[in-house]
Write a protein that binds this DNA or RNA. Structure first.
Lengths: 210, 210
DNA sequence: TTAAAATGTGACGGATTGCTCATATTTTGA
DNA sequence: TCAAAATATGAGCAATCCGTCACATTTTAA
């Protein structure tokens, strides 16, 4: 009856490390966090466990993070930034290359993001849905769609945003499934994803040349 | 140092209810479990919370389930059975219908499964990855692929398993993303998924008619 | 009717988790 | 050099959570 449901755990970091030593501590904490997510998952992911694994004291941990959710948030933000950078790089480096190559590079960026550390990715993915990060999530998706969309628009597709949205979604689906099955052959996966994307794009409307 | 990582929580139900009363209790527990997953997620999902919400005592709960994981497992199994039934029905009812209609029906079954109760679906999806259910997961995927594959084979595709695998994966990706965005317009989603599937299938090899 | 089986109850003990705080150590900057 | 700022420590408390167990109630079936 009471609002037990709302658990507004703080998300933002407490204070930024100012010295090299504390910087190392924060890094160690984040690495330990990723390690636990990778090896044991979200359930045994506790502040005490993270601190211990990081070789730091709980006190130190709480100096920089107000709780486990803040650690997860930081992990998510870093991973996202990495992927977005890769996608932007791929898009920009293939501006004047053949379309097929541009598509390949974008797919490769997405695959790298998910296939690298799939356990951690999956855990963070679910964690994200329980965190108040929806605004950021939306912004990220928008940024990704914007990049892909620009690439499509430059090649004459008339509804680049929709195409980008759907291409990203179906690519994600295939990549996730592959990760689930423990597929490690990126080239085979790339090949099949390319076929799906290409097939889909053939049905997408193009700007009519009058 | 010790193997704290392995937490082999029991998964199988303890005993089956024999009377109508206990049957109702088990149902209430499962409904309460779904409710908590839907409203609060995996973190506040505790045995005590489930029992309280179900209007049963913890003692009763532990009479039928050895722990929270067993409840999640049962939830997953029931949901899966429902979806598989729907897919089989769709496949069988469209055996002698136009191919486009068969594809639509299969897509609709998948969409219904995910768009109905997306919060619960997401929670169960992550939970599944932490449970020793991989064998069952694989069997389910095989069963689904088998149905879709049979449909494809009957229409002359020469690599129906691969096509089915990829179509299921990309469909899942689009549906999941839609669920994430809170899309509720099933018709729009169906339309876009159909375009993706159709586009992909156009690149799939067909049996050559000699 | 009645004994056995099935079912339901919830207080509670042991274990875990989140997190603080008083205190110790290191680094900085003047 | 040395006081202030930054950083690190970990015992320990409050708040859960899990899960059992002794006992009460209901249902079954002979």
């Amino acid at each position: 009856m009471s609002d037990k449901s709302a658990k507004p755990h703080p998300i933002e970091p407490r204070k930024a490390p100012r010295q090299a030593r504390s910087n190392a501590t924060v890094d160690a904490i984040l690495e330990a966090a990723a390690h636990i997510l990778r090896e044991e998952g979200l359930v045994p992911f506790t502040t005490n466990a993270v601190a211990q694994r990081a070789g730091a004291s709980i006190g130190s941990l709480y100096q920089y993070f107000p709780g486990k959710d803040a650690i997860l948030t930081e992990l998510i933000r870093r991973k996202r930034q990495t992927m977005l950078d890769a996608i932007r790089l791929a898009a920009r480096e293939t501006r004047s290359r053949p379309f097929a190559e541009a598509v390949d590079r974008l797919i490769a960026a997405g695959i790298a993001h998910q296939l690298d550390d799939p356990q951690v990715s999956r855990a963070l993915e679910y964690a994200e849905s329980t965190l108040p990060l929806h605004t950021e999530t939306h912004e990220l998706k928008m940024a990704i769609v914007a990049e892909v969309s620009a690439t499509f628009a430059a090649r004459g597709f008339s509804e680049p945003e929709i195409a980008a949205h759907d291409v990203v979604a179906l690519t994600r689906g295939m990549i996730d499934t592959a990760g689930l099955y423990g597929e490690t052959d990126a080239s085979s996966l790339t090949d099949r994803v390319r076929r799906a994307v290409t097939g889909y794009l053939k049905t997408a409307p193009k700007v009519s040349r009058t």
